[in-house]
Design a protein around this nucleic acid. Structure first.
Lengths: 269, 269
DNA sequence: TACGAGTGTATCGTACAGCGATACATTGTC
DNA sequence: GACAATGTATCGCTGTACGATACACTCGTA
């Protein structure tokens, strides 16, 4: 039985450290930490692995896993060889998507956009230094796992990220660049701060952002930002295609106006 | 700012009661219960509402919410009017989908199926008395919210549910029918035990299950079961279309063989 | 077939984490 | 301007969750 690679580019948590907060319930934190262990996992985990990864004793892990299992948030693997995330998680997924007003507003527009664009269309939301995909409308050729809800990518080297940064002050942009662990995800990934700033500036001028093979070989993507009424960027709309079918110029000429229209429709309520 | 209806047909948990289990950490249970409060919510919740819904005191709710907020599993509403689920939830969504072997195996087949079928294609997984949608490939006309990952439907009155029941013993089927809270979700919903058993029997003979407007007006759906090597049904593949474009006969003639093929391809590893 | 290293499970006395009542500060609604 | 909501903070007591340890079981290997 094969399991899918982790392949998570963005830094997951960052969750700034919390200590000696009288309202902070550490049992809950541990539970979430145990669940988060799976972020790094490529296969079902054993109790000891969970304990080790979470920096807790075996007993603690035992209790937490036991409890989460009772509740359906953790399951035994089909072959009874380890623990995997449980299906109850999906209930919360639905709640999140349903109660996020941006997703709610964006969705019909996104569907409409997908009708006019035969390429992949995504909606991503900003979370710290990364963008998390909340809705993904696949094009025909992709694999499902390239388009998972919940997948996240770094801000510094993606079209969506740059679209978002374009709506920030230079200071904020610098801070993001600074705090991001920049690495060459592909050979084409731009990691140099000055170069990133230039791409952001370019996005400001064009009204959309462009990224070429910076996260995935052969992929071209453009994005436009979704902003709150006060101008704060909240996420982005992406259109992604293959360089085997498009060159950068024609891709932009064709899709930039559509992406811009869509973002505009969403941004003015 | 509008929020999406809850519209959850299936009974969410069932989570059999647990008492005085020495390994059971109630703080964790409370955390999950707080998160589950959103299942029933149509709008951002206040602390008091959360406390009341969870049957806990205000202080307890305060601590739990505070903690979950620190960790990113709960956020303040955009207008700062209440609490909503946080984005960190999506990270776990990804883990679940990625580490579920059935989803992994089924996905490519599903994509292929969608290519040949211009209608909506879904993958659902069984959880007790309900089916939870794990992957949804929209057709052109639907709204996004009709096709949310994590949405769940009852087994007793859906095509997928009947496909699943078709692979169970009569006793098991009866138990499901018995324990389900059967109500007429639409006027066409079949709630009579004998009638349900007949539909299951029909599914056994045909190799696929059919449901007409039992959950959604105007919707026709057929489904085939996904089974474990030992024969236990784990979920189903659905193809759903509109009765404004199809009559039942031609829908089945056209799609039943495709659905059968797809399920077959998945079931033999 | 016997070993041993790895699983998951069960038990138990103790300390301190989390409990809940209560009081306060802030908002916006009538 | 008074009121009924909201979210926030404080504080002693108690019972929950802690972690060490011992056990049962399933593997793969020798």
């Amino acid at each position: 039985m094969r399991y899918i690679q982790k392949a998570e580019y963005g830094v997951p948590p960052s969750t700034s450290i919390d200590e000696s907060d009288p309202l902070f319930v550490q049992a809950i934190a541990r539970a979430m930490q145990v669940l988060s262990t799976f972020h790094e996992a490529g296969k079902p985990l054993t109790l000891n692995e969970i304990a080790a990864a979470g920096g807790m004793g075996k007993s603690a892990a035992q209790r937490v896993v036991h409890t989460l299992r009772q509740l359906g948030y953790i399951d035994r693997d089909a072959d009874d060889r380890g623990y995997v995330p449980g299906i109850r998680i999906l209930d919360h997924t639905r709640d999140y998507l349903r109660m996020n007003p941006l997703v709610a507003r964006a969705s019909p527009v996104l569907m409409e956009l997908r009708r006019n664009v035969r390429e992949r269309v995504d909606l991503s939301l900003r979370d710290g230094l990364r963008l998390v995909y909340a809705a993904r409308l696949q094009s025909k050729r992709e694999t499902f796992f390239a388009t998972l809800v919940g997948q996240s990518v770094p801000i510094y080297c993606t079209s969506g990220g740059r679209a978002v940064m374009a709506h920030m002050s230079d200071a904020e942009v610098d801070e993001i660049i600074e705090r991001s662990v920049r690495r060459e995800i592909t050979p084409k990934t731009i990691t140099d701060p000055a170069a990133i700033r230039a791409k952001v500036q370019e996005a400001r001028e064009n009204g959309y952002a462009l990224a070429l093979e910076e996260v995935l070989q052969g992929e071209i993507a453009i994005a436009t930002a979704l902003v709150a009424p006060d101008g704060t960027p909240l996420g982005a709309i992406h259109i992604a295609g293959s360089l085997s079918e498009w060159d950068a110029d024609s891709f932009c000429r064709r899709f930039a106006p559509l992406a811009g229209e869509a973002a505009g429709a969403i941004n003015r309520f």
